[in-house]
Write a protein that binds this DNA or RNA. Structure first.
Lengths: 200, 200
DNA sequence: TATGTTAGTGAGTAATTACTCACAAGAGGT
DNA sequence: ACCTCTTGTGAGTAATTACTCACTAACATA
């Protein structure tokens, strides 16, 4: 028998293993057997910590939600102007996708989209929250005159989240052949320059 | 025994059933049994028409590729100005996603991304072709002065494909609670107005 | 060092998976 | 009405799935 660990540590190991394998094998194809082998325990051990696979996925959702929320908080806390905060929010999101490359695949997984309503609601909430942060800072940018008031902040926020998602998809479909964060920030600047046209 | 059909008709039925189920059940988890039940034949009948599941997926890839290519051709043929053609290309893509709602999921399925290199190559080519169409018409718009030359057409094309993908994700995560095409075209107009700022 | 608690195991389960094969029967041409 | 080609079936297969359960051994604390 291998080294025993406190339940909380082992649970964290299992969630990490799932995130790694979701990237390699795909979220809908990874099995409890794969996870157990990756962690280094037997399959039965997985079910000691998570009664069902669905609850394991919910735990994964919680971990991701917590990490994203913290990244956003840091981005907001470290900057003062709306423009800097917006850039930091986008940068944080790109960095999180690099850190959890399975994220886009999980967004399209059947586990999330079909089987696990709990998980789906969680992610929907996460995306709405992010959108709200973007809108708030875009409103700030309109107020301080750094972008045009001709574009509604809600629409601008959709364009920006789409940008992040689109780049992330290109990144993973293209075998991650470019650096996500620099490329994303470059295109963000292109879009921000467009938003600013009223001020030129 | 139910009604017999010529092989070509039955193959088409099977592909249609797969597309319907890929949306409901998810591309990576739908089984030959599910497909057989949906078509109304036994599981063995599926394997009479397609020797393996992978070859069935390849047939699906061909069907999708043909439909997309035709939609683009019609979009290009029915319009003359670069701006109209660009709008028609985006509209066609949104319409295809509505008609084949499994499309985004298939694009990110493991069947395509990991298991089936044949299918993957087919889709990669299709997407590159779409991007090329967008770039060509964006260049046309720069040439005829309907958008600013400050944005590189390649970057603008990425922003537009990201827009389509981002909206499609919002659409499916939000249980398709809004009409995809109108919302997409509305945001396209917002983006196009930004691209045009140099001309105001 | 003795004891109660908890992480982990080994060996199962029934259900489901993609796929096979010998055979049956509808349909079209003659 | 016959023959033949082709579509479809019934009954299998071995492998894999999520999940269970009786049991064992490591750890904390006293």
């Amino acid at each position: 028998m291998l080294q025993r660990k406190p339940a909380e540590d082992r649970k964290a190991d299992i969630v990490e293993a799932l995130l790694r394998l979701a990237d390699q094998i795909g979220p809908d194809r990874l099995t409890t057997n794969d996870i157990a082998r990756e962690v280094g325990v037997t399959q039965a051990a997985i079910f000691r910590h998570f009664p069902t696979k669905a609850e394991l996925w919910s735990a994964v959702g919680e971990v991701i939600a917590a990490r994203l929320a913290e990244a956003w908080q840091q981005a907001l806390a470290a900057n003062t102007t709306p423009k800097d905060r917006l850039r930091a929010l986008i940068a944080a999101q790109l960095r999180q996708i690099e850190a959890i490359p399975a994220l886009p695949a999980i967004l399209h997984s059947r586990e999330l989209n079909v089987d696990n309503a709990n998980l789906r609601q969680r992610f929907r909430g996460i995306l709405l929250q992010y959108q709200a942060h973007l809108v708030a800072n875009l409103e700030g940018m309109i107020a301080d005159g750094s972008i045009t008031p001709d574009v509604r902040p809600q629409d601008a926020a959709i364009l920006l989240t789409s940008l992040v998602q689109g780049i992330a998809i290109r990144w993973s479909l293209g075998s991650r052949g470019f650096a996500l964060q620099p490329e994303g920030l470059r295109l963000l600047d292109v879009q921000l320059a467009l938003f600013a046209y009223g001020e030129r």
